[in-house]
């Protein structure tokens, strides 16, 4: 290591390709950046997974096996309420991030609780929609189209469920440990996750419900 330490003088030589000024890399990034970036990569991989379900939905859209089509099944009003719930929850999630940054526990709990409640309302609406579809004989086993529909929308719903579980865990963590650096990093990841689910939902309501019910 002495060699490593002693060789660190005489800048700029040694790089055969360098022309003019070379900006030296400053070294490893801070932990918050590393964690956030890693989670960002995970989110992108999650979005790629969703893209497969979207692809399957797009291909199987017309394969209704003489069963009901999207236009006959989808209730636009319900979808609109679901969407508003998620958009508001994204907003309250942002408020929770700000509250955490200024270390305001009360506002943090309020905003997180609002986020969780909005998420639960969304899930309840989705569950009701699914139950109604199954009850009228339009369950996922009815046709390839419904298979793709239930899988894509259900996969998003499962993500929201996992998000709510995570949300509760984070509230408990802040309650027990306060705004420690590692917990702040996890909150950053949670916020990213929640906002990303919203982006996926934008694709879901546009492609599945709106495009899927155009004649």
């Amino acid at each position: 290591m002495a060699i490593a330490a002693t060789a660190g003088h005489g800048h700029g030589h040694g790089d055969p390709h360098h022309i003019g000024l070379v900006i030296e890399h400053p070294g490893p990034a801070p932990k918050r950046v590393v964690t956030g970036f890693g989670f960002w990569i995970f989110l992108l991989s999650d979005i790629v997974m969703f893209s497969c379900f979207f692809a399957a939905y797009a291909v199987l859209l017309g394969q209704t096996a003489d069963g009901p089509k999207g236009a006959e099944l989808f209730d636009q009003r319900n979808v609109a309420i679901e969407t508003v719930c998620l958009l508001l929850s994204s907003f309250t999630c942002g408020m929770a991030s700000i509250a955490a940054d200024v270390r305001n526990r009360l506002w943090f709990y309020l905003a997180m609780a609002a986020t969780g409640v909005l998420g639960l309302i969304f899930l309840a609406l989705e569950f009701r929609e699914f139950a109604a579809l199954v009850a009228r004989g339009a369950g996922p086993t009815r046709s390839a189209f419904l298979t793709a529909f239930f899988t894509l929308v259900g996969c998003h719903g499962l993500h929201v469920t996992a998000g709510i579980l995570w949300l509760l865990t984070m509230m408990a963590q802040v309650f027990a440990k306060g705004f420690r650096a590692d917990i702040m990093r996890r909150l950053l990841c949670f916020a990213l996750f929640w906002h990303a689910l919203d982006i996926i939902w934008v694709a879901v309501f546009s492609v599945v419900y709106l495009l899927g019910s155009t004649p």
Binding site: A29, G36, F37
Partner: peptide, 9 residues
């Protein structure tokens, strides 16, 4: 650089 951001920050 040193000022690189975490996504979401």
């Amino acid at each position: 650089s040193d000022t690189s951001f975490a996504p979401g920050d």
